[in-house]
Amino acid sequence: MSVAVIRFGGSNCDRDTVTALEELDVDGNLVWYDDGLPEEVDGVVLPGGFSYGDYLRAGAMAAQEPIMEEVRAAADEGVPVLGICNGAQIGCEAGLTPGAFTVNESARFQCEHVYVRIETTETPWTAAYEMGEVLKLPIAHGEGRFEIDAETLADLEDEDRILCRYCEPDGSVSDRANPNGSRDNVAGVVGRRQNVAVLMPHPERATLPYTAGCDGARMLAGFGG
């Protein structure tokens, strides 16, 4: 089980992700974007950071790199692909997942812990959770507000493609629990198939025992099958 963690210029959660995967006995390997995907790859992480300095829009530049064509092909073959934070922005910009992540309602960079509710257990990363389970995870983003038109959002609901929503500690979804003004509190979404998903919170920062909580560990452990 070898998971490629793709490092773009400006990625900064790449090593954290590899360390978290190793903690879970999943073989994570840093892959420089310009080297292309390894031939044998069992999973892909688009990690967090500020690829290309967030020029134009967060994720817009990295989404156009040739390696993303390889990621798209791998995803179509069923390889699990997870985008985290900047990786989520890249995933949406590349069209792997629907919607867009844009400037927080506060217009500020926000670095804090939030609660999210698991909305589907049909993905590799959420299969180990209970439906509706509440996780405490860190966020660190300036452009995390999920935007999508109402019709597409309704389709996503119908197709069970909402990964998780910002919520209160008791699991109820409220405006107060929504850190960035995301449409319908959406924190993560699923692609056309269940093996592709993105989310703004950082499971890799909630995996190691010496971080503030390990609620994200089962998410990344999903790469281990």
């Binding site: 134009l56 949406c92 910009e93 844009t102 935007e147 038109d149």
Partner: peptide, 8 residues
């Protein structure tokens, strides 16, 4: 394809 994001 790049300058705008049709979603927003």
């Amino acid at each position: 394809r790049l300058l705008a994001n049709p979603t927003i």
